[in-house]
């Protein structure tokens, strides 16, 4: 009996994390404490903040939906989202073909890749700041900002989709003597079409979300109305706008799911 017991004790615990894992978690905890200190996180502050939060939430009720600038702002956001998705996709299609390494030589793909990366790196709101400087306040700046973001997003994903296609069909089409355009239309497009529809649906959805905030920097849409309501401490209107935005975004998500189902 004693023999069995000692052998039980000496057996390694398989669920015990290794020394490196435990060291990693210890480092993570040290970092969290350090970063929390630099961010000015303290109990007292959180307590006070929660107090303000309660007051602030009380100001939200009842939400105000009756102000006249609510509906035009939402419609302008929708316009920005639709046009940016259209222009962004139209620009992204040729760029992604040009940047696919299985269709183009590297001296073409590299410059185009850099353009796509540039479009993707900056948050739409930052692009919107530059666009507002270029074309002034209003929906136009929002359309430009979100178009740039769409080019980056659709361009990258579509280029990856094109690079993953099967080479056999392309070669079969080429063997019939097809021109370059015909190779693209009959060899590449059928292979990437389904994924492309998914990207565009996702992109439109994401443009709808962003079109509600670019207004914060003056690029049109409901965001500007929201920001000024905030600065006027008009909290019941803020609540109304926020609920309207959430409803719009959720509606967009539902429509996106249905559209994807239609094309499956």
């Amino acid at each position: 009996m004693t023999n069995v017991e000692t052998s039980m004790v000496t057996r390694a615990d398989f669920f015990r994390p290794s020394i490196w894992t435990r060291l990693g978690y210890a480092l993570l905890i040290v970092y969290v404490i350090y970063a929390a200190a630099t961010l000015g996180l303290s109990w007292e502050r959180i307590e006070r903040g929660v107090g303000y939060g309660a007051k602030f939430l009380a100001g939200f009720f009842p939400p105000n939906f009756t102000k006249s600038d609510l509906i035009p702002g939402l419609l302008e956001s929708l316009q920005i989202a639709f046009l940016a998705s259209l222009f962004g996709t139209l620009i992204a299609i040729p760029l992604s073909v040009l940047s696919a390494r299985n269709l183009m030589p590297s001296f073409v793909t590299w410059p185009v890749r850099i353009i796509i990366i540039l479009c993707r790196t900056f948050h739409p709101v930052i692009v919107a700041i530059i666009a507002v400087k270029a074309v002034g306040f209003g929906a136009m700046a929002g359309v430009i900002a979100l178009t740039v973001a769409s080019v980056g997003f659709v361009g990258k994903l579509l280029a990856e989709a094109i690079e993953e296609i099967s080479k056999k069909q392309i070669e079969a089409i080429r063997a019939t003597g097809a021109s370059f355009m015909n190779t693209i239309i009959f060899g590449v497009v059928p292979q990437v079409m389904n994924r492309f529809i998914g990207f565009v649906a996702y992109e439109t959805d994401s443009n709808l979300r962003h079109s509600t905030i670019v207004g914060v920097v003056g690029a049109g849409g409901i965001g500007g109305t929201l920001f000024s309501a905030f600065q006027r401490y008009d909290y019941d209107f803020v609540a109304g706008i926020s609920i309207a935005i959430i409803a719009l975004v959720m509606l967009g998500e539902v429509i996106q799911i249905y559209v994807k189902r239609v094309f499956r």
Partner: peptide, 25 residues
């Protein structure tokens, strides 16, 4: 999950700035 995702970062930031004051927190 859907509700937290629908409110954009900037909107959350406006709420939390009103609660905790401006700053990285």
């Amino acid at each position: 999950l859907v509700a937290t995702r629908s409110i954009s970062t900037l909107l959350w930031a406006l709420f939390f700035v009103a609660m905790f004051g401006p700053g990285p927190l």
